[in-house]
Computed example of a mutant assay.
Amino acid sequence: MAKIFLITGPTQSRKTTRLTHWCSGRTDVGGLLSPIVFNKRCFQNIRTQEWLAMEAELDEAEVQQVGRYTFSERTFAWANHVLLQTSRLPGIKWLVVDEIGPLELQGKGLNPALEIIFSNLPPHLNLILVIREKICESVLEIYDLKRYGVELFHYPEN
């Protein structure tokens, strides 16, 4: 049966860095990491290492706004596609979503892919979700994740 593992903690507490090291060299892991590249938060496809900046360029028309941040619709469409495609690949035992934040609680961001994945979670697929500490309970409630086995992720050995 599928399980959901949570990584939560304060901003800048090395969640993505530790997760990146855990994913390195593994062939059974896919999904998205959110590293900072050239001082910009990005999505990085774990399997291909391809990355795109989350923040919109100044001339982008299709954007998502949350607080003082303006995010690229194009990047989020790509990220949603990566999650959905990866969740269906044979051999993937771990799907990483780094991270679920305020956009998703508003039904934006990665929400389209998350709703599909959470409603049809294959029994062989374990999810690793990075969730902001302040909204963790809200995410668990809104997506009804407690119906799965939810526990903290402890970076098991490869």
Rank of each mutant, 00 (worst) to 15 (best):
R47G: 00
I135E: 05
R18F: 15
P90K: 14
L121A: 05
F5Q: 04
H124S: 15
A56C: 07
S24L: 08
Y148H: 14
C23S: 08
P123Q: 08
H21R: 14
I100K: 03
F76M: 02
P112F: 05
R18I: 06
T17E: 15
P112R: 08
L32G: 04
R41V: 15
R132I: 12
T27D: 15
E104P: 02
R18W: 13
V29C: 08
N158R: 05
V37M: 09
K93N: 14
E115N: 11
I135P: 04
I142V: 11
E55D: 07
L129A: 06
E60F: 03
T20P: 00
G30P: 00
I117V: 13
A2N: 06
N111G: 02
V150W: 08
V37G: 01
Q65N: 08
V130K: 00
I4S: 03
A61Y: 07
M54S: 04
G91F: 09
N158H: 07
N126R: 02
E50F: 13
K134S: 14
G25F: 10
E99P: 04
A53I: 12
H154F: 07
V66N: 04
E141L: 14
I7C: 05
Y155T: 01
H124E: 11
R26S: 12
T8I: 09
F153E: 01
I131L: 03
L127H: 09
Q44L: 13
R147Q: 13
I46Y: 02
C23H: 04
T27R: 15
V29H: 02
E73F: 11
C136S: 12
I117K: 05
E99Q: 09
T17Y: 13
K15Q: 09
D59M: 08
V130T: 10
P10R: 12
G91R: 09
Q106T: 05
L19Y: 08
A2L: 01
E73A: 14
R18S: 14
E50G: 06
L84D: 01
P123W: 11
L58G: 02
R41P: 12
S72N: 03
N120E: 12
K3E: 10
L145R: 00
P156Q: 03
A79C: 03
I135K: 04
Q64A: 06
R132H: 13
F76Q: 00
K108N: 11
H21K: 15
D59W: 11
R47E: 05
P10I: 15
A79D: 01
P10N: 13
A61T: 13
E57I: 05
C136H: 06
G67C: 06
T27S: 15
C42V: 13
L33R: 02
F71A: 05
G107L: 08
V130Q: 02
I128D: 01
Y148I: 12
T48H: 07
Y69M: 10
P90W: 10
W51C: 09
I135A: 11
